[in-house]
């Protein structure tokens, strides 16, 4: 099994839904009214990417893609934590009243 389109229907279905999910999360990433909205969208985007990597690992028969997914998860968690830390640091009421 080489290409995705040569795969079985379940894999094609999964890839189609995951791609639709990436598109929806990308819309929220662009449109999101506030910064935390964008961070949540980025989080979901990378989780959808992890799902795509997993499906591709199954379709291509190569388990090395799962390692990429694990690293992606680690980086995503650190990114979300860092974003949350700096969003909270930047939300002091004194600074916001001055501004």
């Amino acid at each position: 099994m080489t290409g995705l389109l040569a795969g079985n229907p379940a894999e094609i279905f999964a890839v189609a839904l995951l791609c639709a999910g990436v598109a929806m999360a990308g819309y929220r990433l662009v449109r999101g009214p506030s910064l935390p909205d964008r961070v949540v969208a980025l989080d979901l985007l990378t989780i959808q990417g992890l799902g795509l990597l997993t499906v591709y690992a199954i379709a291509a028969g190569r388990s090395a893609y799962l390692d990429v997914g694990i690293v992606l998860t680690l980086v995503t968690f650190l990114a979300t934590t860092a974003f949350a830390y700096y969003i909270e640091k930047g939300s002091h009421p004194e600074e916001r009243r001055d501004g």
Partner: peptide, 18 residues
């Protein structure tokens, strides 16, 4: 196949939620 369909459907529901 069942795990793929159910898992990707849940991911789709998450995207629909956001």
């Amino acid at each position: 196949a069942v795990l793929l369909v159910v898992g990707s459907s849940l991911m789709f529901v998450a995207a629909l939620g956001i």
